[in-house]
Amino acid sequence: MSSTEISELQRTIGQLRQCVAALRGRYGDIPAVRRLVNDIERLDIDSSEFSGTPSTPVPRNPVEAEVVVVPDTPYDPALWQGADDEGVGGYQR
């Protein structure tokens, strides 16, 4: 976010703060006004975090995947001795 955008955001939050203060003067300290005050405080906190972050996102370092070599040779038939084929109904004995 550029400094112009951050300044505009902070100015707009200030305007919201003034509007909510006017609502508080008119309606008092009702729950809806307290929630709005809380929301503005959260917006102010979140907008202040932008000034500490870089303007462009930092790319992540690519993770090297471990390569697993699968041989092309056939498996030992003894490995499958006594196993049933799923979905076929098993071997007939």
Results as ranks from 00 to 15, higher is better:
74 P>F: 00
93 R>P: 06
41 E>K: 10
38 N>E: 15
2 S>Y: 00
36 L>S: 02
35 R>T: 15
49 E>V: 04
46 D>I: 01
17 R>C: 03
14 G>P: 00
71 P>L: 03
32 A>F: 11
57 P>T: 10
7 S>K: 12
76 D>G: 02
33 V>N: 04
38 N>K: 13
38 N>R: 15
83 A>T: 09
12 T>D: 08
16 L>T: 03
87 G>Y: 06
43 L>Q: 06
76 D>C: 05
4 T>N: 05
90 G>A: 02
76 D>M: 03
76 D>A: 04
10 Q>H: 08
32 A>M: 12
11 R>F: 11
16 L>K: 09
47 S>W: 07
79 L>K: 07
66 E>W: 11
33 V>C: 08
43 L>N: 03
88 V>W: 08
37 V>F: 04
67 V>G: 03
88 V>P: 01
79 L>W: 08
47 S>T: 13
29 D>S: 13
77 P>R: 02
62 P>W: 01
16 L>F: 12
79 L>C: 04
24 R>I: 00
27 Y>C: 12
79 L>N: 07
44 D>Q: 15
48 S>C: 03
33 V>L: 08
55 S>Y: 06
56 T>P: 00
17 R>W: 06
65 A>N: 13
71 P>A: 09
91 Y>N: 14
80 W>H: 07
81 Q>F: 06
35 R>S: 15
39 D>M: 14
69 V>W: 14
15 Q>E: 13
55 S>A: 12
15 Q>C: 04
86 E>Y: 06
41 E>S: 14
45 I>D: 08
42 R>T: 13
89 G>P: 01
53 T>A: 12
87 G>F: 02
54 P>W: 08
68 V>F: 04
11 R>G: 05
88 V>R: 12
23 L>K: 05
56 T>H: 11
9 L>H: 02
33 V>I: 15
70 V>Q: 07
58 V>E: 12
38 N>S: 15
92 Q>R: 09
38 N>T: 13
50 F>E: 03
47 S>I: 07
86 E>G: 04
44 D>S: 15
15 Q>K: 11
81 Q>R: 13
76 D>H: 05
38 N>W: 08
12 T>Y: 01
6 I>F: 00
73 T>H: 06
78 A>E: 14
36 L>N: 00
20 V>S: 01
57 P>N: 12
81 Q>H: 10
75 Y>D: 11
66 E>L: 13
29 D>H: 06
33 V>W: 02
86 E>P: 03
77 P>L: 01
61 N>V: 12
67 V>Y: 09
38 N>M: 12
68 V>M: 03
80 W>C: 08
39 D>R: 14
35 R>Y: 13
26 R>T: 11
31 P>D: 13
15 Q>I: 10
40 I>C: 05
36 L>M: 15
19 C>Q: 15
58 V>K: 12
35 R>C: 10
48 S>F: 00
91 Y>E: 13
36 L>W: 00
56 T>W: 07
77 P>C: 02
77 P>I: 01
64 E>C: 04
2 S>D: 08
53 T>R: 15
13 I>V: 13
74 P>I: 00
35 R>L: 15
11 R>I: 04
24 R>A: 06
61 N>D: 14
19 C>R: 14
2 S>C: 01
92 Q>D: 06
9 L>V: 07
74 P>W: 02
31 P>K: 12
62 P>R: 07
83 A>E: 09
55 S>W: 06
73 T>A: 10
81 Q>W: 05
37 V>C: 05
47 S>R: 07
13 I>M: 09
24 R>N: 05
